[in-house]
Deep mutational scan, measured.
Amino acid sequence: IDAAQIVDEALEQGITLFVVNNRLQYETSRDSIPTELLNKWKQHKQELIDFLNQLD
Rank of each mutant, 00 (worst) to 15 (best):
N22V: 04
T28Y: 05
D2P: 09
L37Y: 05
L38W: 07
V7Q: 02
Q54R: 12
E36H: 11
F51Y: 15
R23S: 14
A4R: 14
N22H: 07
K42T: 11
E12T: 11
N39L: 14
I15T: 02
G14H: 05
E47M: 13
V19T: 06
A10M: 03
R23L: 14
F18Q: 07
N53G: 08
R30H: 07
Q43R: 12
E36R: 08
L17M: 05
Q54Y: 10
F51P: 00
I49K: 03
L37I: 05
I49N: 01
V7M: 05
A10F: 05
G14I: 02
N22M: 07
S32L: 08
I49E: 04
E12A: 12
D8P: 01
Q43E: 11
T35S: 10
L55W: 08
S32F: 13
V20P: 01
I49G: 01
L11E: 07
E36F: 09
R23M: 15
W41F: 15
N21C: 14
I33S: 01
Y26V: 05
E47A: 14
L38F: 08
L52K: 00
Q46F: 08
I6L: 12
Q25A: 12
Q43H: 08
N21Y: 06
E47I: 14
K42G: 07
I49M: 06
F18I: 12
S29N: 11
T35P: 12
V19M: 04
Q54H: 11
F18H: 09
L38G: 03
G14V: 02
H44E: 01
G14S: 04
D31K: 09
K42E: 13
I49S: 02
A10D: 01
A3K: 02
L37V: 04
T16H: 14
A10P: 00
S29Y: 09
I15V: 10
T16S: 07
Q54N: 12
L37P: 00
V7A: 03
V20R: 12
D31S: 10
E36Q: 09
L52S: 00
T35V: 14
F51M: 03
I49Y: 03
D50M: 11
D31E: 12
A3E: 03
L17F: 05
G14E: 04
Q46D: 10
V20Y: 12
I6A: 03
F18A: 06
K42A: 14
V19K: 01
D31Q: 10
E36G: 08
I6P: 01
L55G: 09
L37A: 03
H44K: 05
F18R: 13
Q13W: 15
S29F: 10
D2M: 13
A4Y: 06
G14C: 07
N53E: 07
E12Y: 08
N22I: 06
L17C: 04
L52F: 08
I15L: 02
Q13V: 07
E27A: 14
Q46T: 09
E36W: 12
A3C: 12
A10W: 02
D56P: 13
H44D: 01
T16M: 11
N22A: 07
K40Q: 07
Q54E: 10
L37R: 01
D31T: 10
D56A: 14
K40A: 05
T35W: 11
S32A: 10
A4G: 09
E36L: 07
K45C: 14
W41C: 05
L38C: 08
Y26F: 10
K42L: 13
H44A: 07
K45H: 13
I15S: 01
I15K: 01
W41I: 15
H44R: 05
L38A: 05
L37D: 02
W41T: 02
L55C: 08
L37N: 02
I33G: 01
Q43A: 13
Q43M: 12
K40T: 07
L48R: 00
I1K: 07
A4K: 14
N39Y: 11
R23Y: 10
T35F: 12
E47H: 07
D8R: 15
L37W: 06
I49F: 04
F18N: 05
D8N: 15
L24Q: 00
F18K: 13
E27G: 07
Q13L: 14
L37E: 02
S32E: 11
Q5F: 12
T28H: 06
D2K: 11
E36M: 08
F51I: 03
D50T: 10
A4D: 03
L55S: 09
P34Q: 04
T28C: 05
T28R: 03
L55Y: 11
Q43K: 13
L48C: 02
E12P: 01
S32T: 12
Q13C: 09
Q25H: 15
N21F: 07
A3N: 02
N22S: 06
P34I: 03
I1E: 08
V19P: 02
H44P: 01
P34E: 04
S29D: 12
T35D: 12
I1S: 10
K40L: 13
